[in-house]
């Protein structure tokens, strides 16, 4: 029975002589169970706890209240944290798009074939060196006695910039993490665009900018959208970069979740923060997606 099932995608009803367990079920269930137990279950528990009450000294008190969410909305400090997270993420994402597009375009349209895969590796390797190592490296570069300061002093033209522990440094750090994702996503969509379309527009006298604006951009929009969403989500959830490069005075959402859950042991509020972070990210990306899709439909008509 098993050999027939292994090759037949649609087991015919005729052969349904009281099957024990369908093989697909047996193959997929351990992994499914694992994810349910290690991800969905804990998330559900966490959501339930976000409705509990935190009493200092008593840890957590069973309740069914929205007061943790209300506290977030009423607290100027946390509004500021969310606002910082939003603008830092928005700016980093925009910079990624602006810096990533030329690279993706070059990779697809102009790079010599030998260099395509080499460049790809050069772009992806730094991505996987780990957040801790990359952050350390940016600290070495941006620090007061760092490479950048020394380089600027050596030219004698600039007064040393104080970048470490500023939002600017966090944006630099985040952009360097997210750029590879943006480039890979954009490259994927650009590869699918017929080069003849661009050549045709150009032969009819369109300038290169015009070709980009009227031909490439509309066709690449789904990929631009995907890359932008990905980068935005990644930076909304960034942890190591804001903590180490932003310094103690700089606050973003993910480090606050850690702070509340693991350090302050205020599980109800920490859980509420986590769900607010995910909800804000989800709502913003969905709305942006819908708006741009609508625009895109109008464009393509």
């Amino acid at each position: 029975m098993t050999s027939a099932a292994a090759t037949a995608p649609h087991p015919s009803p005729g052969s349904a002589r009281a099957r024990r367990i369908p093989p697909a079920f047996g193959l997929a269930s351990p992994a499914t169970l694992f994810v349910v137990l290690a991800l969905l279950g804990p998330l559900a528990l966490m959501f339930r706890y976000s409705l509990n009450r935190f009493v200092p000294g008593e840890f957590m008190v069973e309740a069914l209240t929205l007061e943790n969410y209300v506290k977030f909305l009423g607290d100027g400090f946390y509004q500021e944290v969310l606002f910082t997270t939003l603008w830092v993420s928005g700016l980093s994402t925009l910079l990624c798009l602006l810096a990533g597009f030329p690279v993706a375009y070059y990779l697809v349209r102009q790079a010599p074939p030998v260099w395509k895969s080499r460049l790809m590796i050069l772009i992806i390797l730094p991505l996987l060196m780990g957040n801790a190592v990359r952050t350390a490296a940016w600290m070495v570069i941006l620090g007061d006695k760092g490479l950048l300061a020394a380089g600027m002093a050596a030219t004698g033209l600039f007064s040393p910039l104080k970048l470490m522990y500023t939002p600017a440094a966090v944006v630099i750090g985040l952009v360097s993490v997210m750029l590879p994702f943006m480039i890979v996503t954009l490259r994927g969509i650009l590869e699918g665009i017929d080069r003849n379309l661009e050549d045709a527009a150009e032969s009819l006298g369109a300038s290169h900018l015009m070709v980009l604006w009227r031909v490439v951009l509309p066709l690449a929009l789904p990929g631009i959208l995907a890359g932008t969403m990905l980068c935005f989500i990644l930076s909304m959830n960034a942890y190591a970069t804001p903590v180490l490069i932003g310094g103690p005075q700089f606050h973003m959402m993910a480090p606050e979740v850690y702070q509340q859950v693991a350090k302050a042991m205020n599980w109800p509020f920490g859980s509420a923060l986590a769900f607010i972070l995910m909800a804000v990210t989800l709502v913003l990306t969905t709305v942006a997606n819908m708006l741009i899709q609508r625009r895109y439909r109008r464009w393509s008509e």
Binding site: A38, L43, L45, M46, I233, Y258, V261, A262, S271, A274
Partner: peptide, 14 residues
């Protein structure tokens, strides 16, 4: 897709 910090916090609590 679930943010690492959120997934980590949830596992920690569980």
């Amino acid at each position: 897709i679930v943010p690492g910090i959120v997934g980590g916090a949830a596992l920690f609590i569980a």
